[in-house]
Design a protein around this nucleic acid. Structure first.
Length: 110
DNA sequence: CATACGATCCGCCAAA
DNA sequence: GGTTTGGCGGATCGTA
């Protein structure tokens, strides 16, 4: 999990991940669900959205750029997942975040 | 929005 | 004899 967390930006297939974890894709899926209650891909997507939030909060990079940095293949795909999970658009999220008492250094969303 | 295709996921089950 | 493993089939999902 730590390794995945550090490599969110790289696109990776389950086969690669399983290989790294020294198991099969089948066992990876099984253990992942036992351990985290979700699937590898869903976990990855959630982590990527979380990272996108962080980038929106702490940088002024374009949504395109944030999408790429967070590991999404395109901005539309970031928007799709962002909307589903955070319940807003990336732009709106950034604006709302900046609007609230603007601390100079913030590392977590409210 | 619709289409398309490779990737993912999980029950089943034989084989460790 | 109970538990874990991993390939297969195929419905579903994610991405282009």
């Amino acid at each position: 999990l730590a390794w995945l967390e550090e490599n969110l930006h790289r696109a990776q297939t389950l086969a690669q991940i399983a290989r790294r974890a020294a198991t099969s894709v089948r066992s990876l899926n099984r253990r992942f669900r036992e351990q985290t209650g979700t699937t590898p891909l869903q976990w990855l997507i959630q982590s990527r959205v979380r990272r996108a939030q962080l980038l929106l909060e702490t940088t002024t990079h374009s949504v395109e750029s944030v999408a790429a940095s967070a590991g999404f293949g395109s901005a539309p795909i970031l928007r799709e997942h962002f909307r589903r999970i955070v319940k807003t658009t990336p732009q709106a999220y950034r604006r709302a975040f900046r609007g609230k008492a603007r601390p100079r250094r913030v590392t977590r969303a409210p």
